[in-house]
Amino acid sequence: MHPILAVGLGEILWDVLPRTRLLGGAPANFAYHVNALGGAGVPVSRVGDDDLGREALSLLVCLGLNIDAVSLDEDHPTGTVDARVDADGVATYVFPDDVAWDFLTLDQSALTLAANADVVCFGSLAQRGEVSRRAVHHFLAATKKGLKIFDINLRQDFYSAEILAASMDAADVLKINDAELDVVTGLFSLPQGEQPALRALMERHDLDLAVLTRGDKGSLLLSPDTVSDLPGEPVEVVDTIGAGDAFTAALALGHLKQWPLDEINRYAAKVAAHVCSQPGAMPEMPRKLRLA
């Protein structure tokens, strides 16, 4: 049996912390974690033809990822983000404009990958510019059989109601955190309360599954006829960078394996807790969490 082919579609960037620099970007993190859990994760992105871009590609190869769908941009630099981690390990981010992933382009090999993908995860950040927004939706349209997960990933003011609505329309699964749900509830005049708000989004956008993460307060999964609401996994947090992406990767694998919602929820929470206990977005995954 072939491993699950999972695409992380969007940004690759360097998280620049006060004392170090770590490779990240939610789609790249997602691809890494799928790979680390036993699937075949592949990033589709763009980096600059510069030292940071070459270092990113080299590191992705060392991490075991296929980089055939990561293109080089001769005109724009590799993306970076200034990440600040507070006393509780929670990260906030500031993103420079006009970097390589804002100009994502798709060649035929990327479109072939779209047609063969079992799952594609994408967010709103990579859609802040028109070029990459078109590329993201072109890729999604070419995804014939794959599950499409919109991990909303609101950053700064790089989103609009139109972008979010179109992305939910294109998706099968919505993944959102509690702070983002507050923003989206106001933006779309949703009913108050987690489940009513998520149910409204599911109905409006014909979603199969809605997923809410609340950090250490647990996670909620809603399908049309099932609810899974579980407490968080106890963990000593080093930082939260990449934890949401790890949750999404584990969720994708469990969902494609048709596990019950409680089993998916529990597994994803364990994976995310492990990432919280380690520095950076792409820590090594213990064998006990791998599916193969």
Score class of each variant (00 low, 15 high):
74 E>S: 14
159 Y>M: 04
122 F>A: 02
136 V>D: 00
62 C>G: 15
41 G>D: 04
5 L>Q: 15
155 R>S: 12
260 P>E: 14
279 P>G: 04
35 N>A: 06
48 G>Q: 04
280 G>E: 09
267 Y>V: 04
258 Q>I: 10
220 L>G: 09
34 V>P: 07
176 I>N: 01
193 G>W: 10
130 E>V: 14
246 A>S: 14
44 V>M: 08
143 T>C: 13
264 I>F: 04
222 L>I: 11
258 Q>H: 14
172 D>R: 07
53 G>K: 08
4 I>V: 15
215 G>H: 11
34 V>M: 08
176 I>M: 07
193 G>P: 10
208 D>T: 12
188 F>R: 12
228 S>H: 13
281 A>N: 02
38 G>P: 10
289 L>Q: 02
11 E>L: 13
92 T>F: 04
241 I>Y: 07
200 A>K: 12
18 P>K: 12
148 K>L: 09
123 G>Q: 02
254 G>Y: 07
239 D>Y: 05
143 T>W: 03
262 D>G: 07
38 G>V: 06
231 P>T: 07
47 V>C: 05
93 Y>L: 03
42 V>C: 03
12 I>M: 12
122 F>H: 06
76 H>C: 08
101 W>T: 00
186 G>L: 08
104 L>A: 11
257 K>W: 01
291 L>G: 04
65 L>D: 07
69 A>T: 13
90 V>D: 10
142 A>C: 05
70 V>F: 08
127 Q>E: 06
141 A>I: 06
87 A>W: 00
157 D>Y: 08
208 D>N: 14
120 V>L: 01
132 S>V: 04
66 N>F: 02
79 G>Q: 08
134 R>V: 10
99 V>W: 00
55 E>A: 15
175 K>S: 07
217 K>G: 02
172 D>H: 15
272 A>D: 06
142 A>Y: 03
176 I>Q: 09
140 L>K: 10
44 V>A: 08
130 E>T: 12
100 A>G: 11
117 A>G: 05
160 S>G: 11
36 A>W: 05
155 R>L: 09
243 A>D: 11
83 A>S: 12
244 G>E: 11
262 D>T: 11
179 A>N: 12
89 G>P: 07
68 D>R: 14
217 K>Q: 15
195 Q>W: 05
227 V>P: 04
94 V>H: 14
115 A>Y: 01
114 A>M: 01
251 L>Q: 02
279 P>N: 05
10 G>L: 10
249 A>L: 03
26 A>P: 05
52 L>P: 03
207 L>C: 11
216 D>A: 15
229 D>T: 01
113 L>T: 02
123 G>P: 03
262 D>W: 03
6 A>N: 01
26 A>I: 11
170 A>M: 09
80 T>K: 02
50 D>Q: 14
216 D>R: 14
259 W>N: 05
124 S>G: 09
94 V>F: 00
168 M>L: 15
85 V>W: 12
227 V>W: 00
281 A>W: 01
21 R>N: 03
198 L>F: 09
117 A>V: 05
253 L>A: 03
99 V>K: 05
42 V>S: 00
153 N>D: 04
103 F>I: 04
40 A>R: 15
102 D>Y: 03
84 R>Q: 15
64 G>E: 11
72 L>Y: 06
213 T>C: 13
206 D>Y: 08
83 A>Q: 00
116 N>T: 03
73 D>S: 13
40 A>E: 14
